[in-house]
């Protein structure tokens, strides 16, 4: 089957790729575009390791087709830092050791940023439910939840 030519915006830059109709956005990002920061843990929408933003909406990229990105904007973990300047969530995850193996981390960070973009003062329960789709087998979530809440507090402090 002929491949489809897709034009989209990835992390603020225009990008083009050829993909088969059945190829997922996750596979396209990893294998065609060379952005392997987005991880595959299940390919069934159950682990959140593949979380990206598609037109400002948090999605599991394993459940989106590559062709669906046509004309849209995609944001991945690789676009989160501003050059050498880490996003406050990334910095806080490092300071508070909110990762062990780090495999869930890209997806968790993308999802956590999506939360803070809509809610700058989430309760612990809100953070837990928002991140319930991001499995982490290493940390027991404790340090992840704290890092997200502490980042939110810092950001509120900075904008107050």
């Amino acid at each position: 089957m002929a491949k489809q030519h897709i034009t989209t915006t990835i992390n603020g830059e225009e990008a083009e790729y050829l993909c088969e109709a059945q190829e997922t956005l996750l596979d396209v990002l990893r294998d065609q575009v060379g952005l392997t920061g987005t991880k595959e843990g299940c390919s069934s929408g159950d682990c959140g390791a593949c979380s990206v933003m598609l037109d400002g909406r948090l999605v599991c990229s394993c459940l989106v087709l590559g062709v669906e990105a046509e004309g849209k904007t995609v944001e991945t973990i690789e676009g989160m830092a501003d050059g050498e300047e880490l996003h406050p969530l990334q910095q806080k995850f490092l300071e508070e050791a909110a990762l062990q193996c780090g495999f869930c981390t890209p997806g968790v960070l993308v999802a956590a940023k999506a939360l803070l973009d809509v809610n700058d003062d989430p309760t612990e329960t809100e953070v837990r439910y928002w991140l319930a789709g991001n499995l982490c087998r290493c940390t027991g979530y404790d340090k992840i939840i704290r890092a997200v809440m502490d980042t939110a507090a810092d950001l509120r402090g900075a904008s107050a």
């Binding site: 990893r30 920061g37 973990i77 880490l86 495999f103 890209p106």
Partner: peptide, 23 residues
């Protein structure tokens, strides 16, 4: 003490290479 881990930045920016990331 609790310094930032040496492999940390790679792991929060998606640069760290895991098993399936090599082509």
């Amino acid at each position: 003490t609790r310094p930032i881990r040496p492999d940390g930045v790679d792991k929060v920016t998606g640069r760290a290479m895991y098993g399936a990331d090599l082509t």
